[in-house]
Design a protein around this nucleic acid. Structure first.
Lengths: 343, 343
DNA sequence: CACACCCATGACAACGTCGACATATTTTTC
DNA sequence: GAAAAATATGTCGACGTTGTCATGGGTGTG
């Protein structure tokens, strides 16, 4: 049951344990011949290095901690974690994940737990884009914030999706296809992305010469996240019942687009011939399940994760991080829910 | 930068390091007075025990490893992870997660990594219910399989959802509400759940005296998971265009139900007045977004995770595990997508 | 051939913690 | 009031690894 250690390998290979250590870590000054003998012994005995012992000696755990509110227990931004893990795999880092579930006592505990494992750095990740101040329990460990940003600016490096650019591209996409009456069903205003997306929508339509009269904007949801009030179906229905109904509707996100589809169809409207619809997020369970498939702007979750991890690594290596807040662009994913509007 | 150790605490409190160790671990034989003095020193210095050192000494890592194909990087069965984490939190265990992404070389690496961290046990979790043989790289660590089962039966304890019972309950639910012509859109036959659900549907309808003529069964998807061919919309459309169309449709899962909704509405049918629809899984992003909200059978992911963790713990503690394969039932979640059928 | 130098290896201590054992102090028992 | 038992604290070494320094042999230099 007990594990073979470096000592047993050394004995088996007839060398000192330090030499075994050298082989394991690929250090120079080992003859090819001894190296082979040691490697054989390692294979024969099935030796696996003990990370704990290594850490205790060298005080470098090669471990990153991910602390999130709900990410890894919720279907939404999981791709952030995938991005981090892929980077970590490729670079020999171990990942420790913990979820606060929104509790700040829990958050303090987690920082303690992370410290007790002597992690090298923390990736602070939120489920949806927002402003938070990590409850570090007053520790200073290199930290990168992903999908969120600290209240007190300039404090911690952060990396976020570019909601504004995504919504702008989407709006342009509709405008370029001739739509001049456009509806917008707003995300829960609690969400940081909500304002940015709406803002981009307003400005871009106005740049194209549309006025408030050409726009039809309603609130889709509000209330606390996870227990929100849902007005989407009603809002979409009302919007589409107007005589001068919009020829295209932009949805705050993909999920809400489901209800817009249903509302449209219940009124006998065809998508995209009678109404074009675009979403936001590229939540694929939805975008691919809807028929016609939904054109949307993809939140760059995977990249956020990968870049965040890379960035954290630089930070740990002691590199100065200048641009304290970075933004990653959203890519427009063209599918088939938008038609040209012949006027 | 360097961490305070038990020695500095001992010095500060004017006791031996062993006494500090006793206080930390809540061992008896420490005066209330010394305990307080030590605790104060711990607080003042911000001392946090070093897990690595503890592990190296006591060779009990108190860590469970989760090895999954895609779970933590995919929106589907994340609740399994949540269940595990909640149990782990409550019981002072640390969790290490790694995803194979389907690669078996990677799987071998992960087992090695787990061993190098001297984890106490492994939870082997799959995204959808299936039969797999873990590629352990021929190690024997206590393992519990969640949402899957080994090919070579009786080898490892496993815990799975009861797809059969879930589908049976759902079918009964429809029958009890007077539906006598029922459609079924089949899951990808690759999935283990597909056969069980269909089987339950067939047997239960037959127990109620329906014949194959009353049933209308089509394939919704096939092909490799993640890149499947999708026939759902077409199948549903065709099914609902028949003169003696079914009054209720059972969907292989919730996601597919989106397309059934859209197909029904495109034909001008109202849900649930003209067609009732039920799903499977309770994938809430879908079930709650559809209007009317979808009645479905909830896959007990959270419980699977929690029970699996608890079970693994017993296993590690040396308890004999008798029932090698366990099953957890699916709960019917009644919402509003089913109406009574007046005949 | 004496010197410096590079290469290959080993001896040993140290990392932070806890278990085994030893010692000192107090309380109980008869 | 002495022996026995229970409580309180300390000393020391070990866990598995790697960093530091030492050693020994080989090679080249003048």
């Amino acid at each position: 049951m007990d594990m073979v250690s470096i000592v047993s390998v050394a004995k088996a290979a007839g060398v000192s344990n330090k030499t075994v250590s050298r082989v394991i870590n690929g250090e120079p000054y080992v003859t090819e011949e001894t190296r082979e003998r040691v490697e054989k012994a390692i294979r024969d005995l099935g030796y696996i290095p003990n990370m704990a012992a290594r850490l205790i000696r060298s005080s470098r755990s090669n471990t990153f901690g991910i602390i999130t509110d709900y990410v890894s227990t919720t279907p939404y931004s999981v791709d952030i974690v995938r991005g981090i893990q892929d980077w970590a795999n490729a670079n020999g880092k171990t990942i420790l994940i913990a979820n606060t579930g929104g509790s700040s006592e829990r958050e303090v505990e987690i920082w303690k737990m992370f410290q007790s494992h002597r992690i090298d750095g923390v990736l602070y990740v939120t489920m949806y884009r927002r402003i938070v101040d990590p409850v570090t329990g007053d520790v200073s460990i290199p930290t990168v914030m992903i999908n969120c940003r600290p209240q007190t600016r300039e404090l911690l490096p952060s990396i976020e999706p570019d909601d504004y650019q995504g919504a702008r591209d989407l709006t342009r996409y509709l405008l370029e296809r001739g739509h001049r009456r456009i509806g917008y069903i707003r995300l829960n205003p609690i969400l940081l992305g909500a304002e940015l997306r709406l803002d981009a929508f307003r400005r871009t339509t106005s740049e194209f010469g549309l006025t408030e009269n050409d726009l039809s904007i309603s609130l889709g949801m509000d209330g606390p996240v996870g227990a929100e009030n849902n007005y989407v179906f009603a809002a979409a229905t009302e919007m589409l019942k107007q005589d001068d109904r919009p020829t295209a509707i932009m949805s705050g996100n993909d999920e809400m687009a489901i209800q817009i589809y249903i509302a449209a169809m219940a009124l006998g409207l065809r998508i995209p011939e009678d109404v074009s619809i675009v979403g936001f997020d590229d939540f694929r369970t939805v975008t691919m399940a809807l028929k016609p498939e939904l054109t949307t702007a993809a939140l760059p979750y995977y990249d956020l994760g990968r870049e965040g991890a890379k960035w954290l690594n630089d930070l740990i290596a002691g590199e100065k991080i200048y641009p304290v807040s970075r933004v990653v662009s959203c890519k427009l994913v063209e599918r088939s829910s938008v038609a040209f509007n012949p006027h």
